[in-house]
Design a protein around this nucleic acid. Structure first.
Lengths: 156, 156
DNA sequence: TTAAACTTTGACCTTCACGTAAAGGTTAGA
DNA sequence: TCTAACCTTTACGTGAAGGTCAAAGTTTAA
């Protein structure tokens, strides 16, 4: 008994920097499973469940909802890997990829917008050192056409 | 009176593909303001508020919370643009940029993980055409070390 | 064997970003 | 003037992802 074959919910929580509530919640959603219960009803998890929880955490960190996580993880009944199953999983992954690429595109647009905005701001800072104080309204206002839509209203 | 100087909440909602509820909510959070009220108490918005709402929508699409949106948009009291104010805004933007870059990094990691997973799956599909049906467990199991942590538990 | 620490289920609470009535007042047009 | 369409505030509902609390049962170490 040097190595405890099974983990209680508290141990699993601790080793995944999670909480017992979260573990139960994931179990309830079918994202993980307790291997068995003790005679008294305690959940007993296998060590491999640590990796499962970490996987869920990683996917969540990447911005996926638990529903998405379930979609990615569920169809993995690798008991019998038929070509159809593989195709399904592959399609699920491909869909996720497209969604993620879309999010990256949006974020990069925003990044650009922020960069342009900062450049404007820096230009303004300099001019406000030269003139007294309200010259900035000139360099920020007016021709905002080159500013992306997201920032046109901020720097008006 | 060919052009209605002011928009009612319903018109603003329609022109931003939004809802009156959302508009009121944004007003409540201080993200937008009604220029005035009619004698009967109707909110009357300026046309420029359309752009404000669109800006909020864009920022939200990029994944920012309304709290973040407020942070980005609030400190813009361009009445007097002091160098200090500019510096504050610039810092706020820079912080947002860093946060956004971080999210992009995570998403790209996930993208790579998904790509690797799909390659494995495709390899498996082929082998399952050759052998009968359970050879896949061999090519998927075992040495998953090259698989990123997020997918090790999916393809086990 | 007993106390401390842990676990069980159940049930209600929280935040975000609104949705959805309810009950009544306002405006525009015929 | 009347009505349809619009607006007002107030207030409760929703769904995601858990947090928190309670009352009771279970394990473990001394």
């Amino acid at each position: 008994m040097t190595k405890p074959r099974h983990l209680t919910i508290g141990q699993l929580a601790k080793r995944t920097c999670s909480t017992t509530r979260t573990i139960r919640f994931y179990e309830q959603l079918g994202l993980i499973q307790a291997a068995e219960r003790s005679s008294g009803g305690f959940r007993l998890f296998e060590e491999s469940t640590i990796a499962d929880v970490q996987c869920i955490q990683d996917l969540k960190l990447a911005g996926l909802s638990l529903e998405d996580v379930a979609l990615l993880r569920k169809p993995t009944d690798w008991d019998r890997v038929t070509p159809e199953r593989s195709a399904t999983l592959d399609k699920a992954f491909a869909n996720q990829q497209e969604a993620i690429r879309d999010r990256i595109r949006r974020l990069e647009e925003l990044l650009q917008s922020l960069e342009k905005a900062r450049q404007k701001i820096r230009g303004c800072q300099e001019c406000s050192k030269q003139t007294d104080r309200s010259g900035c309204l000139d360099c920020l206002g007016g021709k905002d056409d080159d500013l992306p839509r997201v920032l046109g209203t901020i720097l008006r």
